[in-house]
């Protein structure tokens, strides 16, 4: 997948998971991994970027004698997610047209 495209989709995916409720790193990682193939190496920069943008915030909760870092969606993050959904809906429309064209010229859909 195109790296820029993947980046955007990843951002949107993480935001949408957080939109369902706050979650901690490992759980978030499992959720993402269950949807698309992604190593921790790829996930960390995403989280870092989203946090730097102010789209998600973090807080720590004690768990088994250590701190578990939770991520939550900020108001700005919620707004960004809404934009992503709009953009992706538009993209979906275009993909549909592209796939149709590919079906007409090449393999049977």
């Amino acid at each position: 997948m195109d790296p820029q495209l993947k980046k955007g989709i990843l951002d949107a995916l993480v935001l949408s998971i957080l939109a369902e409720g706050d979650t901690y790193g490992y759980h978030l990682s499992e959720r993402v991994a269950g949807i698309m193939e992604l190593s921790e190496t790829a996930l960390y920069p995403v989280l870092r970027r989203l946090e730097a943008q102010g789209w998600l915030g973090t807080y720590s909760v004690e768990h088994n004698g250590r701190l578990r870092k939770y991520y939550h969606l900020t108001a700005a993050g919620r707004e960004r997610l809404r934009q992503y959904v709009e953009e992706l809906t538009e993209l979906e429309r275009i993909i549909h047209i592209i796939a149709k064209g590919a079906g007409d010229h090449g393999e049977q859909a």
Binding site: L5, K7, D11, A12, A52, G54, R80
Partner: peptide, 17 residues
């Protein structure tokens, strides 16, 4: 962009530069 405040960093758009 190390040590930057979030406002200073432009967000990468979907598939944008």
């Amino acid at each position: 962009a190390p040590e930057k405040t979030p406002a200073d960093m432009p967000g990468p758009g979907l598939g944008g530069p």
